[in-house]
Simulated scan of single mutants.
Amino acid sequence: MNPTIESHFENLNSPDKNTQYEAYNQIIEATQQPVDWAYEVWDQLKEDLNDPDNHRRSRAAQFLAHLAISDPEKRILQDFPAIWNVTYDKKFVTARHSLQSIWRIALAGSEQKELVVNHLVDRFHACEEEKNVTLIRSDILQALRNLNDEVNEEKIKRMAMELIETVTDPKYKKKYLAIWK
């Protein structure tokens, strides 16, 4: 692994929050494109999905979502349930950050895209009883929008519009439609 990237991962454990944040941003930036070091950190990130520290769980889910494009072995398909589980984290901010980045897994290929989209659609319908249903639904629709912006598939937009049509409250329907304007 490149020494700079290695130091960013080490800096995630710094006692200084600014150093941690800078390291996080550098890793996110590096993983916008495929990288050759994904498997050097993969197993540790997978372990971190269950770490007692919610920041570690959140970062692990986000980093794995970003590393999906660097996963020719398609490990993400097997590890997806553990990542998806973090979107239900007891700490809502952790759950939300994970949910907001999970769409990136869909950029890795058609199998991954189908898996992610199906989970997002199912969650949109099933989250009615969750505490922050409107935020969760907004995040799901934004995730679909982000994915559509990357892959430009009419099917994804159509699916999002169908989800929005199921919403009965006009205030939230309007809010959700604004995501797609």
Rank of each mutant, 00 (worst) to 15 (best):
T4P: 03
T4V: 15
S7D: 12
H8P: 00
N11T: 04
N13K: 13
N18P: 00
N18H: 08
N18V: 05
T19I: 15
Q20M: 09
Y21E: 09
E22Y: 03
A23L: 10
Y24M: 15
N25Q: 15
I28D: 00
E29D: 12
E29T: 13
A30N: 04
Q33K: 11
Q33D: 03
P34N: 00
P34K: 00
P34C: 00
V35W: 00
V35Q: 01
W37K: 02
W37H: 04
A38F: 06
E40L: 14
W42A: 12
W42Q: 10
Q44M: 13
L45N: 09
L45H: 05
L45M: 12
L45Q: 08
D48E: 13
D53N: 15
H55S: 06
R56P: 00
R57G: 02
R57K: 10
R57A: 02
S58L: 02
S58C: 12
A60N: 02
Q62H: 04
Q62E: 13
L64M: 14
A65L: 04
A68Q: 03
I69A: 00
I69L: 00
D71E: 05
P72S: 05
E73P: 01
K74C: 03
K74V: 01
K74N: 13
K74Q: 14
R75P: 03
I76M: 11
Q78N: 07
Q78M: 00
D79M: 03
D79N: 07
F80N: 02
F80E: 01
F80K: 04
T87C: 05
K90N: 11
K90Q: 12
F92A: 09
V93D: 11
T94W: 02
A95S: 14
R96T: 02
S98H: 10
L99C: 06
Q100H: 07
I105S: 04
I105W: 00
S110D: 15
S110F: 07
E111P: 03
Q112S: 15
K113S: 14
E114Q: 15
L115T: 14
L115W: 05
V116P: 09
V116K: 09
V116W: 05
L120A: 09
R123Y: 12
F124D: 06
H125C: 03
A126T: 09
A126Q: 14
E129P: 01
K131P: 03
N132F: 11
N132P: 01
V133Y: 11
L135C: 09
I136R: 01
R137T: 07
I140A: 05
L141T: 06
L141H: 04
Q142E: 12
L144Q: 03
L144P: 00
R145I: 01
R145N: 13
N146G: 01
L147S: 11
L147G: 06
E150I: 08
E150M: 08
E150D: 06
V151P: 08
N152T: 13
E154P: 00
E154F: 12
E154A: 13
K157S: 10
R158E: 14
M159Q: 12
E162V: 03
V167C: 12
T168C: 10
T168G: 15
D169Q: 15
P170F: 11
K173S: 12
K173W: 04
K173F: 05
K174V: 05
Y176C: 04
L177W: 05
I179R: 03
